[in-house]
Design a protein around this nucleic acid. Structure first.
Length: 531
RNA sequence: GAGCGCGUAGCUCAGUCGGUAGAGCAACGGACUUUUAAUCCGUAGGUCCCGGGUUCGAGUCCCGGCGCGCUCACCA
């Protein structure tokens, strides 16, 4: 060609360049969208085969590699020392197992007649060595068309380079999928929080720690199911469309069923249907699923989130405390087993047993006011700036508690024995009906779990539903009449303990994640503007 | 819902007092058979979120809108 380069290769637009390479792949007879490929080993499994790599000397010796050198943290030092070691062994060659890996190309170092590719799968990444004289014409031609972000597989021998880098010396490449978009910056990854959420697939691939965090979430959920299964709980699937959005104090999402011409609510809690199942003889029953609350969005709130609720007949809130503790401890063991866990620049110590403190005791400790002194509590509330007129003393007390005590509870700490009138679904203490057998578990000021000795007296339940709490609007009250639920109670619900756990928050705390959006794969976002 | 902040190349980010757009990565061309955030030489790449306004002149100042983040409220 006399007049310079072909038109197709002068395109500076990275998207057009990728399209052009796609065209060339097709021209070569390569399917740019791949297909089934068997025999792929995970990269972590391949790396685990490092001890099988030997150096064969000319004298016929098979030497083990100096593993202690290869595992040096300091890369420069590792390279130097390995190079020295290798030179001391005289001539010879590296021999290792034959492997096949697949993954996305993360780095692509073109060194003329040599190419180094870093390929990443769900378990890690490994370097590929592609040499012009080693892979043959067809593979070399293919290698020239590879972009970062493409998905490929490679066959080759797993060994180490002269500088001690574990590497697959490629004998054959398999093209599997073209990436037509340009990947994020290779060193900084994807930083824009909006893009990270809108394009979680990029966040997962290109930002360190994101995939492991979601894998940790999966492990926590699996562990919880396993622990409950081991204790004889049945997992059920209750309705998500409710005619009465009960069981918690929150505004629901409303939807409409056309055929029934009926407004329905997305569930805000799992409670009332699980209790119906207690009536039905499912003595140990739980649901782990999504609930929806039409409330604000914040680093600790997403409109849909995951909740565990578990109910155990013949138990009480003490039973639930033990269950909560073991659910969390087993979950930690499923991740990495470290009871002392980082939280920002702090440390959370999950070493059992978790502290157990009463509501009143903590109230007194953090406010200096006797919680039984209604006038004193009211005065304190006024000083904070709360409106107190017409409100039930317990409501005022609980507002002060939330303001002054909760944020200070670094925990983990079980807060026991709540004022009865803010707990319409909870059994009262036999010896003191002013106090409800309820606990909440606080960690770093966040409420992670909430449990009751469940109220199973249908007449009292009906009365509590009817009693609107003073000073509270309808949608702020948990006291929503549900006559169908009351009828179920009249058929006999065994005495029971019940527990609710906010799974997202628990996972946040266990994975040192400060915002709930980083622990929910696809958090709610406004739709993107058309460009 | 309110207050504050941010929005510049595919990505990560600069952009001074209002004077006509910058870097790195990615891309394209070239050199290199042990690189590893490869390096070196060269080339190209912009609706400065959108719409108004002020001005001789706006990425920059003002108003409105959109999106995101933080704080607060509601909530777990």
């Amino acid at each position: 060609m006399s007049s310079g380069v072909p038109a197709s290769s002068t395109v500076p637009d990275p998207h057009a360049a990728r399209r052009e390479k796609l065209r060339k792949l097709v021209e070569m007879g390569v399917d740019p969208w791949g297909g089934r490929l068997d025999g792929i080993a995970s990269i972590s499994d391949v790396r685990a085969q490092l001890p099988q790599v030997k150096f064969h000397t000319e004298a016929g010796q098979q030497l083990n590699l100096p593993v202690e050198l290869l595992s040096l943290e300091d890369v420069q030092q590792r390279q130097n020392e390995f190079r020295t070691w290798l030179s001391q062994q005289g001539k010879g060659e590296m021999v290792g197992p034959t492997v096949r890996v697949a993954g996305r190309i993360m780095l692509n170092r073109d060194k003329g007649k040599l190419r180094f590719l870093d390929v990443q799968d769900r378990t890690g990444s490994v370097q590929l060595f592609v040499g012009m004289n080693q892979v043959g014409e067809k593979n070399w031609e293919l290698a020239a068309l590879l972009d970062m972000g493409d998905i490929i597989a490679a066959d080759g021998m797993f060994a180490v380079t002269k500088l001690g880098e574990p590497t697959i010396f490629v004998t054959a490449l398999h093209f599997l999928t073209k990436m037509l978009e340009v990947p994020p910056e290779k060193h900084h990854g994807l930083n824009d929080p909006e893009l990270r959420q809108r394009m979680r697939y990029l966040d997962l691939t290109y930002n360190e720690g994101v995939l492991p965090r979601f894998i940790a979430r999966t492990k926590v959920v699996q562990s919880i199911r396993q622990t409950l299964h081991q204790q004889g709980f049945f997992e059920i699937e209750g309705p998500t469309l409710h005619t009465i959005a009960g069981g918690a104090a929150a505004r629901p999402f409303v939807t409409h069923h056309n055929t029934l011409d009926l407004d329905l609510f997305l569930r805000i809690a799992l409670e009332l249907h699980l209790k119906r199942l207690l009536v039905g003889g499912m003595e140990r029953v739980y649901e782990l699923g999504r609930v929806y609350r039409n409330e604000g969005i914040s680093p600790r709130h997403n409109p849909e989130f995951t909740m565990l609720e578990a109910y155990q007949a013949y138990g009480d809130y003490g039973t639930m405390m033990d269950l909560t503790e073991s659910l969390i401890l087993r979950a930690i063991e499923a991740i990495d087993g470290n009871y002392r866990r980082p939280w920002g620049d702090k440390l959370i110590d999950f070493t059992p047993p978790f502290a157990r403190r009463t509501y009143d005791e903590l109230f007194q400790e953090h406010t200096g006011v006797d919680p039984r002194d209604e006038a004193g509590v009211r005065a304190l509330a006024g000083k904070i700036g709360f409106h107190t007129e017409g409100k039930h003393p317990d409501v005022i007390k609980s507002e002060v508690f939330e303001e002054k005590v909760e944020d200070a509870l670094m925990g983990p700490v079980f807060v026991l024995d709540y004022p009865a009138s803010i707990c319409p679904l909870t059994k009262r203490k036999r010896e003191n009906p002013q106090v409800a057998e309820r606990f909440e578990l606080f960690i770093q000021g966040m409420e992670v779990a909430n449990a009751y000795t469940e109220l199973n007296d249908p007449d009292l339940q009906e009365q509590l539903f009817r009693t609107q709490l003073a000073g509270l609007a309808d949608d702020e009250s948990m006291a929503k009449m549900d006559t169908d639920f009351i009828r179920a109670l009249r058929h006999g619900m065994p005495p029971a303990g019940g527990l609710g756990v906010g799974i997202d928050r628990l996972v946040m705390l266990l994975t040192n994640t400060q915002t709930i959006r980083d622990i929910i794969l696809f958090p709610v976002l406004r739709p993107e503007q058309e460009k």
